[in-house]
């Protein structure tokens, strides 16, 4: 799918498939196109080109039957602070077509799931930030969606509520087989919760694999070298023949050289010697340990929190 806002292409010919029951992570810096992607996948927005289907049915802003099968937990605390937790849930339940006993039962069940049953009658405005996040999650679960989209659900959350949310996601997956799309800034969340992770930048998927697969793609790690642009080609030629080096590639930021190695620590000595021998000055050296953060940096040239 592609989506443009005037001249800006927010989602650029992006294609992906998510399996039923999968927890799928979307990682990307601010402005990468994550929110637009979630908006299109949840039927809030029609793509400029392309389509999203859920089990063969196209998701569009007017496809209400399909939207009923989707749940969205937006990044904002999309709640009515003057209403109690229970009243909020009953309202969103009614909007999704629930009523009567079923509505009451579902509200009670999700309040229990997110650990707010004892505060259900309090105004949402009186909740702590973490409790509001949990209520936000509960509102997305009220109608038992097949696919739940969680957009940065742990932003600004205390450790207790974060742990609660993690537990909820793992429990939903285990007990209901719900498909979950999870966007986050936090690598440890993606590594812990997601079956697969897509790294999105400039509206495109730049890497897509399991967390383990993405980390393994770094090998033993990456040495990121700050080399003058005019010398980069020479530097790459000097480093490529080294036995401990698996590969050399310009960084996505256009200002660095990424050296993939079996062991970043050991290879660093060889790299320094080779560059000295070739009289190539270095502006900076950074060792990226093999984790998703490094993967993200390697593919986007930016830190996740940029």
């Amino acid at each position: 799918m592609t989506h443009r806002y005037g001249d800006l292409t927010a989602v650029d010919d992006l294609s992906l498939e998510i399996a039923r029951g999968e927890v799928f992570g979307i990682l990307g810096p601010n402005g990468a196109g994550k929110s637009t992607l979630i908006s299109i996948m949840s039927g809030m927005l029609a793509p400029t080109a392309g389509a999203v289907t859920l089990g063969g049915s196209e998701v569009t802003p007017t496809a209400h039957a399909v939207k009923r099968r989707l749940g969205v937990v937006p990044q904002d605390l999309a709640l009515y602070e003057a209403l109690s937790g229970r009243e909020n849930l009953r309202f969103f339940g009614r909007v999704y077509g629930l009523s009567g006993r079923r509505l009451r039962d579902r509200a009670a069940a999700v309040l229990d799931v997110v650990g707010l049953a004892d505060r259900a009658g309090d105004a949402a405005g009186a909740y702590s930030g973490g409790m509001k996040r949990r209520l936000n999650l509960a509102a997305g679960l009220i109608h038992e969606p097949e696919l739940l989209m969680l957009d940065e659900p742990t932003v600004g959350v205390d450790p207790q509520s974060r742990a609660h949310i993690f537990d909820n996601v793992e429990r939903m997956r285990r007990e209901t087989g719900m498909t979950i799309v999870y966007t986050t800034h936090y690598m440890e969340e993606a590594e812990r919760l997601c079956d697969r992770v897509a790294i999105v930048d400039h509206g495109r998927i730049v890497a897509l694999d399991t967390p383990r697969g993405l980390i393994q793609s770094l090998g033993g790690g990456v040495i990121q070298l700050g080399v003058d642009a005019a010398q980069r080609e020479r530097a790459a030629q000097a480093l490529a023949p080294l036995r401990s080096v698996r590969g050399v590639a310009p960084g996505p930021d256009g200002q660095s050289l990424n050296v993939e190695a079996a062991s970043a620590q050991h290879t660093l000595v060889d790299v320094m010697q080779a560059l000295n021998a070739a009289s190539l000055p270095l502006a900076s050296v950074r060792i990226l340990e093999p984790n998703l953060e490094s993967v993200f940096l390697r593919f986007t040239g930016r830190s996740l929190r940029d």
């Binding site: 949840s42 939207k67 605390l77 999309a78 009515y80 509102a139």
Partner: peptide, 10 residues
Amino acid sequence: SGAMRRLRAA
């Protein structure tokens, strides 16, 4: 509050 955005997804 974002509640309207949530309604948009409904």
